[in-house]
Write a protein that binds this DNA or RNA. Structure first.
Lengths: 149, 149
DNA sequence: GAGCTTTCGATGACATGTCAACGACCGTAC
DNA sequence: GTACGGTCGTTGACATGTCATCGAAAGCTC
């Protein structure tokens, strides 16, 4: 029913890819939780924050960068603040705004987590792709992700 | 930080693919909700149920097929039953068990939803891939999804 | 067939995500 | 400078997913 109007090839490819779409994030998330006590969402927030030299982002900019809603980031940031991973500061440029800052605790957790995560990305994904496959996957992913929403 | 120990190529490919991993399910889910009032999870349950000639699966088997926990399916099935999409029947083979049955209402909703969903999968994904890319994606997805959990 | 272990689905507590609404503040136009 | 529409982050209600636990029933061993 699902794939009634797809060719054999399309149907098989779509089914296989859909399995990957479910399985890979689930496995990486489990690894992350086991190794570092972080969720994938936590990790993404911490690592994106760490990209800026001063480890600070305005909430709205961080939300845009990660393609999260401001509401989601607001909720999540409140929880991460409670765990001492990040701080919130008022935005001197805009009194409505809010600056998120990677706290020292969060930085240490991220430093601890990153190498394990890289190992996981390798062992569950990169190590099993040829460089040709990697190149194809990159161009194809970029093309499709860049389509209008 | 995230990708400190990946090569340039690996890092770019991984970033691009991760974007796809987030964006594609989100877009298809939005399309599905808009066109049919179903979540992706709803659609997966309905379409998997419809695969059996009698439209029935034991809860545990359906959960295994979809790689969901029994708990998750139990919760979700209760909600879908409330909406008239599926029925629950006692399992004659196993008094602990539970048979999920695609109700007429659910079947109609699925029949309505499926063509729209196929169009969405094409326009947001398949139409933008060459047959070579599709073949590469299929073998690569299968290989990685088949890795041990 | 009695006792022990496992499996099944349900349940409640909790974590997480979405959505609509809100007050506060910004920027612009007048 | 004030009125107005848009943007900011927060909030609460709700939907969904996870986890540990439970009672019931099945399967296994003897």
């Amino acid at each position: 029913m699902d794939t009634a109007w797809l060719s054999e090839d399309e149907e098989h490819a779509w089914r296989a890819f859909r399995r990957l779409l479910i399985a890979l994030p689930a496995r990486l998330g489990r690894d992350l939780a086991r190794d570092s006590g972080l969720s994938s969402a936590d990790y993404e927030v911490l690592s994106t924050l760490s990209e800026k030299p001063n480890r600070r982002w305005a909430l709205k900019d961080l939300a845009a960068k990660m393609e999260w809603s401001r509401s989601r980031l607001s909720h999540h940031a409140a929880r991460m603040q409670g765990r001492g991973l990040i701080d919130k500061e008022p935005d001197p440029q805009d009194a409505r705004g809010c600056i998120l800052h990677l706290a020292d605790g969060g930085f240490r957790v991220l430093e601890e987590a990153a190498p394990h995560h890289v190992v996981a990305v390798r062992s569950r994904f990169l190590d099993h792709l040829s460089s040709d496959e990697l190149a194809v996957l990159r161009t194809l992913s970029t093309r499709i992700a860049d389509l209008p929403n």
